[in-house]
Nucleic acid binder design. Structure first.
Lengths: 134, 134
DNA sequence: CTCTGTGCAAAAGATTTGCAAGGTG
DNA sequence: CACCTTGCAAATCTTTTGCACAGAG
């Protein structure tokens, strides 16, 4: 469903996602937007995030643990640090041909695929190495 | 944390996941097991699903919308029908080398990656084509 | 017997929704 | 001035947790 009006709330949500190069979750976006307008409600933020991602103005990224939002709308893969929760984009190219060949093999109509790599970022690896002084 | 005792509840949960070749979610497993023991509680089912997947006796599969559990423990990819929610295994081979090369590139220590293809299964495509007689 | 695991119910966390009031076109 | 969108609060939904009791070893 296309939004039909431009509200300042929707613009603030959109701008926040665009401005951030990390991958904020809904509540981080809410907290940021509330800095500009203390009256905004979580419900409005959720509604606008859904509206914007349905219209491909932002991307809804489903990460284990907590969904995130991404200013990049082209499909691409993500990398999650299991310890600190940080999410990065991955440089590997998106492989459209997989969707194609799997569609032919299975008879499904395939819209896309999403891939999440999981591990420990360099910072968290170091933090672990200096480790608990048990 | 390894389980230290064999309880009939844990066995029922494990057997249910093994017996089913679809990818049941926690509540489906709960409902099935409750057929055998009406006293079992959701909490016990969740606790055992977590315990079993920590010990790699089953696999916890994170699918958008609802987490599932899989009797296959080797890493592999999944295909989700966005309409009926059915999940299938995908025949594509798991590409360990991606974890490897991404680790070298990023400095992350990468445990694994998961991929979910999303689309419409043949049944749902047909259902849509005969379509709403608007 | 001991201590892990269970059942129950409450808690927690994320997201959605009903409704009256507000604001956009 | 119509009706989409908001704010608020309550509702949903899934999963986790505290605690006293049950049962596996």
């Amino acid at each position: 469903m296309k939004p039909q009006r431009n509200t300042k709330q929707r613009k603030m949500v959109f701008d926040t996602v665009q401005a951030r190069r990390d991958h904020p979750c809904a509540d981080e976006i809410y907290l940021h937007v509330r800095g500009q307008d203390p009256k905004i409600s979580r419900g409005t933020v959720y509604r606008n995030l859904n509206l914007l991602s349905e219209n491909a103005e932002i991307q809804h990224v489903r990460i284990p643990g907590l969904d995130r939002f991404d200013w990049r709308v082209e499909p691409h893969y993500h990398l999650l640090c299991l310890q600190c929760g940080k999410v990065c984009d991955v440089s590997l190219p998106y492989r459209t041909e997989l969707d194609q060949s799997l569609a032919e093999e299975t008879g499904y109509e395939i819209a896309q695929h999403s891939t999440v790599f999981e591990g420990l970022c360099p910072d968290c690896r170091n933090a672990n190495d200096s480790g608990p002084t048990k």
